[in-house]
Design a protein around this nucleic acid. Structure first.
Length: 436
DNA sequence: GTTGAGCGTT
């Protein structure tokens, strides 16, 4: 006699219905599936007005008289046992984290980190307006001096704008800035690490089918099927770790055996960075995200055309698609030994992008935004092996995977012989532990 | 006048 009981995150919030087991108990795991991190359940006794806890035994919640009734139960998180003061804070942070992932449908303020000291709100707003209607743009300043603190907040009128800014990097007045959901330690994963190429596709498989299928593994942020149909599609996942797992696998979708591989960089232009060419210099002598480990030029290699240029992409961010198979293979390898190491990869890749961008930026200085369109968007990747099988690339990048990339500076990269250590990236950037 | 990880005088 399974039933549904109403559970809310806060007493005055909208409850969701969660099923009990046949014996009338509620599994803690069921609760956690809906409220990650939760550890208990409570409810307000309608007769006395006091809050009661629900008995939890061996991972099962037991209602008081074997009846759950029509009460709205409220989730309890571990911190509730501690000091009341942090309680609210901790819970609201945890809540933010949960909400930011999947269930968010309305725009929120986004924090913009790393703004140039000189940036003002007008110009910054103008920059962000290319992504959608901006309803708020503020730069935090020192009380007295009015000097910018180097960060601010921006908010879009709709999720479309928000999603766009969140899924790419930003160069604002010569500095690489980061846009994130506030209070989230989770960096925006580079799209190139999340985008899958789905080949061997037939027209029987629609974009919706693809979305449905890949949603089994993770949230899908984008599906792109070229029109007219060309036998392939792109599917973008939220988490690079998940994407990495899916690469080089055959999947059966609606009876069709499709092949998933990494989304190749477009290669519109054949130019390459010569040694030393990829140096980024901006308004100051530090050309990085925020700081400027500039690293030497990329090695000379040239990406090869795998024949999978999508023509255009829905997000208009072809400059993001510069992931080499070697890097993905390395990511996969890294994942096996150390799932968190991959985030170093992701970060490292941003690093690489930034340097490439840096190179071109130097050449097209003055453009308000380093948007798509400049030369050297992609194509030049030192360690591209040309193999799609993953074998050769694995050997190049694989074992070094986590270890081969790392802290800052891709100085003189020449093809899989990086020597840095993995640990160094990000100065303690903590990966989100919540993907599954 | 300098700086470069952070989380907002509502």
């Amino acid at each position: 006699m399974a039933q549904y009981i109403q559970i809310a995150e806060e007493e005055n919030e909208e409850p969701i219905e969660v099923p009990t087991e046949d014996d009338g108990t509620l599994l803690l795991s069921t609760l956690c599936a809906q409220f990650p991190g939760s550890s208990g359940l409570k409810y307000r006794n309608p007769e006395t007005g006091t809050v009661r806890g629900v008995r939890l035994l061996d991972g099962r919640f037991h209602s008081s008289e074997g009846l759950w009734g029509n009460l709205v139960y409220v989730v309890v998180f571990p911190k509730d046992n501690k000091r009341k003061m942090d309680d609210g804070l901790e819970n609201s942070l945890a809540k933010t984290k949960r909400l930011e992932s999947k269930y968010r449908t309305t725009p929120s303020d986004l924090i913009v980190l790393g703004l140039p000291w000189k940036s003002n709100e007008e110009d910054t707003k103008q920059y962000f307006e290319q992504f959608g209607e901006v309803v708020l743009c503020q730069i935090k300043k020192d009380f007295k001096t009015g000097q910018s603190k180097g960060y601010g907040f921006v908010r879009f009128a709709d999720m479309e704008g928000q999603n766009k800014v969140l899924s790419q990097r930003h160069c604002i007045e010569g500095r690489w800035c980061e846009v994130r959901i506030p209070n989230s330690r989770e960096p925006n994963y580079p799209i190139a690490l999340r985008k899958l190429f789905v080949g061997r596709l037939t027209e029987d498989v629609s974009a919706e089918d693809l979305r449905t299928y890949f949603s089994k593994f993770d949230e899908v942020t984008d599906v792109f099927v070229p029109k007219p149909f060309r036998g392939f599609a792109f599917v973008t996942m939220v988490h690079p770790e998940v994407a990495a797992k899916l690469i080089d696998e055959d999947h059966i979708i609606k009876g069709i055996s499709v092949h998933v591989s990494s989304a190749e960089p477009k290669q519109k232009d054949k130019e390459r960075f010569g040694g030393g060419g990829g140096r980024g210099r901006f308004d100051d002598h530090r050309g990085g995200w925020h700081d400027g480990h500039q690293g030497g030029g990329m090695g000379g290699g040239q990406g090869q055309n795998m024949g999978m240029n999508p023509g255009n992409n829905p997000m208009g961010m072809n400059m993001q698609n510069i992931l080499t198979p070697a890097m993905l293979a390395a990511a996969t390898a890294a994942l096996q030994s150390n799932p968190w190491g991959l985030l170093g990869m992701a970060a490292q890749q941003q690093q690489q992008q930034q340097q490439q961008q840096g190179g071109q930026q130097g050449g097209q200085q003055g453009g308000p935004q380093g948007q798509a369109g400049g030369p050297n968007q992609d194509g030049a990747h030192g360690n591209y092996s040309g193999s799609q099988s993953g074998q050769t690339v694995s050997s190049a990048g694989g074992q070094s995977g986590a270890a081969g990339y790392g802290s800052f500076g891709w100085g003189g990269q020449g093809g899989g012989e990086q020597q840095n250590t993995a640990a160094g990236w990000g100065g303690g950037t903590k990966p989100a532990a919540s993907w599954n």
